[in-house]
Every structure is written in structure tokens, then in C-alpha cells.
């Protein structure tokens, strides 16, 4: 298990290098007139050249990547071209917002998917059909449409939850939950369709296996057979889908934050790409790839827990 995790972590580190390198190559190599954008159209050509030299933009891309990489190791991601705010500080201040929404969204997605998946696998029949229709319908609604419908229903029409804004967890846990629950629910609902179907499918497969019949022959209770034995065996494929859904969910959170006016990575990413703020763009890229690596490792660990064979792989 340790060897396996070390291998996966190694592959993750390679992923970090590959992705940041490609992103750096594409963005810094794209000839975005950064210095011109900062100084404005009326600035003198000599001033633009001077600023380019000061930002190191006149150097070859590989040299620039090397200096970015070495300082990134020390936690220094550079400063924003436009606000001079250190990128790492800006990322850190926005981290709790995005992660609140994404983590709560994922937890909701997991719980709803398991409940629906288990329910429809065990009951079958009309309930199965109804649930499949419901999940398909929530899936076909694009995230932004779903988000707006939720704002409309809960915040404007029913007035039970705040429409927009963010309260930090330390300030008030209640208000924090109120501020993230709607966006988290929107993200969760979109992911539920795929995950619930996976849980249902693998659970149906497991329940048809012989060991389940043998467990029944020993007089075990149905809840124990379904929830303890079959569900655990069904978890492996579902976990893979979960890790993919998590990443999709993180991407969608960028849209959702705008609907709910949450000061997370969505607006930060948007501002940085519209301005061509290269250090900020690299910061976002680095963070997302690190997030992917961490999530995949966590899923591997969880997989080792549910599946003893994976521990020796």
C-alpha cells in the first residue's frame, strides 16, 4: 500500500510538472502584450520595453519557467501585474470560499447519490424508473440555469436563504452554512446524476453475486448485507467516478460563484485571464493541479480501505 501510494504520489508530481510547464509555455509564449496592457495604449514604446525587461518577459520562456518553478517551490508565486498583491496571498484568502462550496457540494453529492443509488438498486421497479428520470432531468439542466432557478426559488421567492455573499465559518457557522448551501446544492445536484447511476449499477451487480446469496444463507439481515457487504464492494468503481465528479464540480464552481457573488477563485480566475495577469493565471493552474493530485491520493487511500486487494497492488 505504501509503495503503491508512493508511486501514485510520484505520478502526481509528474502531473504537476507537465501541466504547469504546458500552461506556462502556452500562456507566456502566447505573446500577450502584458506590459502594453499594464501601461496603457498611450505609453511610450521605450517604457513598455523597460517594463518587459523588469518583469523578465524579454527572456526565453524556458528561463522564465525555471525561475517561476524555483520560487514556486519556496511558496512564492510572484505578484499580480495589476494589483501587486502576492499571488499566494490572494489564493490563500480565496481558498476557504471555493473549498467551502466544493467540499460541502461533494459531501451532499456523495450522500444524495448513495441514498438514491442504494434505494433504487434495492427497491427496483417503478421507483427505479422515477429516480432515473429525476436524475436525467437534473442532469440536462445546465449548471448556470439550475443555479439561477435555485436563487429564484429559495432566495427571491421563498426568501429562506441569502441570495448572495459569503460569511466565513469562523465568523458564524450558521450564516456560513446558509451562504454556501445553495451553491453547494447546485453543484451537488449536477453531479448526482452520474454518481447515483454508478452506485446503483455497481450495487445491482454486487447484489447479484454468489457471496451475497451465501451471506443470506447464514441468516444475515438485509441491511447488513446491502449496506455493509455489497455497498463496500460496490464502492471501488463509484470512488473513481467520485474523483472525476469532484474535479468537474470544482470547475463548475467557477460559474456558480458568479451567480451567488462569492469571492472565491471564480472571479479571481476571470479577472486574471481577462487582464492577462500571467502570475495569477499560473497560480490558479498550479492550485487546480495540486487539488487533483491530492484528491486522487485520497481516493486511492479510500480505495485501499474498501478493497483489501488494492492494498497489496
Amino acid at each position: 500500500m505504501v509503495v503503491f501510494l508512493a508511486k501514485r504520489a510520484g505520478a502526481g508530481i509528474v502531473l504537476v510538472f507537465v501541466v504547469t510547464f504546458l500552461a506556462f509555455l502556452l500562456t507566456y509564449g502566447a505573446d500577450i502584450p502584458v506590459a502594453r496592457n499594464i501601461l496603457g495604449p498611450s505609453a511610450a514604446e521605450s517604457d513598455v520595453a523597460l517594463l518587459e525587461a523588469r518583469l523578465g518577459l524579454d527572456q526565453p520562456v524556458l528561463v522564465q519557467y525555471w525561475s517561476w518553478l524555483t520560487s514556486a517551490f519556496g511558496g512564492d508565486l510572484g505578484r499580480s501585474y495589476f494589483t501587486s498583491e502576492p499571488v499566494s496571498a490572494a489564493m490563500a484568502s480565496r481558498l476557504p470560499v471555493t473549498m467551502s462550496v466544493v467540499v460541502v457540494g461533494c459531501a451532499l453529492m456523495l450522500v444524495i447519490s448513495c441514498v438514491l443509488g442504494v434505494w433504487s438498486a434495492v427497491r427496483g421497479g417503478w421507483l427505479d424508473t422515477v429516480l432515473q428520470w429525476v436524475t436525467t432531468l437534473t442532469y440536462v439542466l445546465p449548471t448556470i440555469v439550475l443555479g439561477i432557478v435555485m436563487v429564484f426559488v429559495f432566495a427571491i421567492w421563498l426568501r429562506v436563504l441569502p441570495a448572495i455573499g459569503y460569511t466565513s465559518l469562523t465568523e458564524s457557522p450558521g450564516l456560513w452554512l446558509a451562504s454556501v448551501i445553495l451553491p453547494a446544492l447546485v453543484l451537488a445536484i449536477h453531479g448526482v446524476a452520474g454518481l447515483a447511476a454508478q452506485v446503483r449499477g455497481s450495487l445491482v451487480d454486487e447484489l447479484g453475486k454468489e457471496y451475497v446469496r451465501t451471506l443470506r444463507s447464514r441468516g444475515l439481515s438485509e441491511p447488513s448485507i446491502v449496506l455493509k457487504h455489497a455497498l463496500r464492494n460496490a464502492a471501488s468503481p463509484a470512488l473513481t467516478v467520485f474523483s472525476i465528479q469532484f474535479i468537474t464540480l470544482f470547475g463548475s464552481s467557477l460559474f456558480i460563484e458568479k451567480i451567488f457573488a462569492l469571492p472565491g477563485y471564480g472571479t479571481y480566475t476571470y479577472n486574471s485571464v481577462v487582464q492577462g495577469d500571467l502570475p495569477a493565471m499560473m497560480g490558479v493552474t498550479l492550485f487546480s493541479v495540486l487539488l487533483v493530485v491530492v484528491i486522487n491520493l485520497l481516493v486511492d487511500i479510500a480505495n485501499g480501505w474498501v478493497n483489501p486487494k488494492a492494498r497489496v497492488a
Binding site: 467557477l254 490558479v284 487546480s288
Partner: peptide, 10 residues
Amino acid sequence: AFPALVLVIV
């Protein structure tokens, strides 16, 4: 494994 949306935006 990569968050496609983030890269598309970047």
C-alpha cells in the same frame, strides 16, 4: 484527471 474548465479559462 485535469480540471478541463480551469485550463480552458486559463
